[in-house]
Design a protein around this nucleic acid. Structure first.
Lengths: 211, 211
DNA sequence: TCGTGCCTTGACCAATTGGTCAAAAGCCTG
DNA sequence: CAGGCTTTTGACCAATTGGTCAAGGCACGA
């Protein structure tokens, strides 16, 4: 039985393979993002995907392989906006655009945000290398850029890495703690207010001179 | 076999009971806070507590009972600083004191923060009632207080609930995402810088007139 | 249409897990 | 130091879980 996932099976994937792998990942995202890695079961994933458990194992080497695939894919999507931070742009506008995009992403991909949060909460056991190789260099680069902007007086003085942390914290919070938000916030467009609040917050923090 | 935990056993707990229940809760906090509810096992907890598994079950009705006990206890500690927000105080100073205390707590009780985060991430299945009864009224009350302060022009205009969210988000982030912070931050006193950063951030956001 | 190789699954397995129980071991008090 | 309680545990159990496997179903090119 040659698994389609075996490394040396370089065949291009059939239509069925493409469809089913996508189904599985979609279902697994649903399950992992709320249950965490250990909390999720292959049976849950199989049922959510509408496939039998052995069939899931036909497409992926195992539970962990599914999780890792999901994590890596998410990581790319997640970092893309930070990549876009443009050294040639106007500092405040660049950062506000980044922040706005991050809020959008929390609204649009809450499952991905929670998947990630779960992994980090548990000490990033399946992702530490990826953090070192993928995330750290990018953050170092952008932190340096922000530091330059500050030196040039085009942003209020701010510790770049902590700025980035607080942007992530405030934006992802709305996705990760949705269950809490649902209880505390009055009905209505939480997201619009959230966007306005976060934007005000960072505008005031970063404006080179107080408005 | 009369369990000491049975409701109608109103006996005051023996010295051994007090000691062992404390041990178990301490061990369980270690385990639950990194593994989440489903990820944690009674064996892990038993081993961490230095007790046998059946002995754990002698002191608590079951896995869930331990988790709930921990959650409820944590919730109190967690909310105490918000309770202290004083209507008679100077608004900006009151809020900054609250924020400082929250940073302290994330530094001092990261496990509690993660325990809580895990529960909320998973949709707060074992805590929703407690959120409604305990958390919501308090937040409503303090949000009203902040709204009053804003009306009186003693704080910059801000949506109170979102302010509270962003305080929680920024402060707890340092505990909950510690694994990520460890990778991204250069060695040194992350916490001191974090405190300074967060304080600046909210000072600028809240100061009734720009400094 | 036929067969070859891709896809699917029922049955099964070993390990883990939350929990039970009866008996043994401490421990305290009269 | 005896008797009755509290505490502790080894042995056990049923359910769940990740994973295997051989056999059957199916699609599609020749």
């Amino acid at each position: 039985m040659n698994r389609p996932t075996e490394p040396y099976t370089a065949r291009k994937p059939s239509r069925i393979q493409t469809r089913n792998r996508k189904r599985i990942l979609e279902a697994a995202l649903d399950v992992f993002s709320v249950e965490g890695y250990r909390g999720a079961t292959l049976d849950q994933i199989a049922q959510a995907a509408g496939l039998s458990k052995p069939n899931i194992l036909y497409y992926f080497e195992g539970k962990e392989a599914i999780h890792v695939t999901l994590l890596n894919h998410t990581m790319e999507t997640w970092l893309e906006p930070l990549h876009r931070l443009d050294p040639a742009g106007e500092p405040l506008e660049e950062l506000l655009r980044y922040i706005r995009r991050k809020v959008e992403m929390s609204r649009e991909y809450p499952r991905e945000s929670r998947l990630f949060a779960n992994e980090i909460l548990q000490g990033a056991p399946r992702m530490r290398p990826h953090l070192e190789d993928g995330l750290k260099p990018l953050v170092d680069e952008k932190a340096a850029l922000i530091a330059r902007w500050v030196e040039q007086g085009r942003l209020a003085p701010v510790e770049p890495r902590h700025l980035i942390m607080s942007i992530w914290a405030t934006t992802q919070h709305y996705a990760d703690f949705e269950a809490q938000i649902a209880v505390l916030m009055p009905e209505g467009d939480v997201w619009d207010d959230a966007l306005a609040h976060v934007e005000t917050m960072f505008r005031k923090l970063l404006a080179p001179r107080p408005d």
